[in-house]
Design a protein around this nucleic acid. Structure first.
Lengths: 203, 203
DNA sequence: GGATTTACTGAACACTGTTCAGTACATTTG
DNA sequence: CAAATGTACTGAACAGTGTTCAGTAAATCC
């Protein structure tokens, strides 16, 4: 009988309906300002219903995080077009920075926000792996070709990601104002910082 | 007449009483989990009283932030002891990282948390300036002695701070787990990352 | 067609930041 | 000294939050 299959399908539809609304509202107003009641209103259901599909607001956050990581991965794939590994790394870095500047609320939700309750690691701990592995593979390619000063990919990733995340997150928290001229173009300055950094770690 | 002076003094005492309790509770439980009612309870006053001294929870946050920045500055002054500028920069970097690892809730409050309402810039925008200037002066010293690849201090600070903040904040959000071995000592790895980075930006 | 399962509701609970009428005490004035 | 004024503080109330759960109505099963 196809009833249970249909029900399962309907359940999935309901879940995507919730996450779609949540993603939209998180993007527009941020995670903190989006309440379960608001989301319920948007999809025209009662607040209690959401808890039949997601255990709490955090679980909703992690669902949306997963989607956001994939969005970033898509951006990587679209913008990393060169054949030269080092150039690819530069394209990736600039894509990362641009992504953070263009989607501040999304970036917040992906890397800055602290989920009130710590989520179960075994189930949700790896929803950014595909995106992270894209970075790691590219770094490995660079190291294999002896283009970087690093010998270990994880060690290199630690530094490269930290630099990129530092630039984006300090900017999102308005901490760069003291270091850059009033009229300067922030994307330009951050891109230049990425460029310079990558030059300094060339083998 | 000394009455108004005494009142002013009492007002200041009350303010420090509030901020001291707030700082303690922010440190222990974090900003989000500390409520005005909790603080009021701790100092044995009613919640309304706090609003006679601080306009809202944000203003309290900025007050505590200021104190935290000074605490970091103290740590800098205590640990930056070398005579060699580059060595001093390394000591500063390691102090920064250690500070963040040792006081995660404080670091959060200083650099990661987004205050719900954006505070008035003219009054509170510069409460971290002394600490930041310490970094800038040191970088200028390095640049003047031609020890760094940078020609501009702000440009250098942008990168150096971003790297340090990236390392600390990604660690606080458990994003480094994928890059470092299970049993590794995080302080050691982050210190090594700082060391390596500083080597790569040497002139 | 009657029993059971399922999906959903919306009121209720315990919290949050913030406001404000009311009070009790300190100070000033007549 | 007594009355009037000023000040510091209270705690209930407001509007919001995440979350739970008894109750209901519809779909499914037997």
């Amino acid at each position: 009988m196809g009833i249970s299959e249909r029900k399962e399908r309907e359940r999935e539809e309901m879940k995507t309906m919730i996450t779609t609304a949540a993603m939209k509202m998180f993007l527009e107003d941020g995670y903190a300002k989006t309440s379960i009641r608001n989301i319920a209103d948007a999809i025209e259901y009662s607040p209690g219903t959401i808890y039949l599909y997601y255990k709490d607001k955090d679980e909703l956050l992690f669902e949306v995080q997963g989607q956001a990581y994939l969005k970033l991965l898509e951006a990587f794939k679209q913008n990393v077009t060169s054949t030269d590994p080092l150039e690819k790394l530069e394209q990736l870095g600039k894509t990362y920075v641009s992504f953070g500047l263009a989607n501040p609320e999304l970036y917040d939700l992906m890397f800055i926000i602290r989920a009130p309750t710590n989520v179960d690691e075994t189930t949700h701990g790896h929803n950014g792996d595909a995106t992270f592995n894209y970075l790691i593979s590219l770094i490995e390619e660079c190291i294999l070709a002896d283009l970087l000063i690093f010998k270990n990919a994880n060690q290199a990733a630690l530094q490269i990601w930290s630099m990129a995340h530092g630039l984006v997150s300090l900017n999102l928290r308005c901490r760069l104002k003291v270091m850059i001229p009033e009229e300067a173009s922030i994307p330009e300055i951050l891109h230049k910082a990425i460029e310079e950094y990558l030059i300094s770690i060339r083998a």
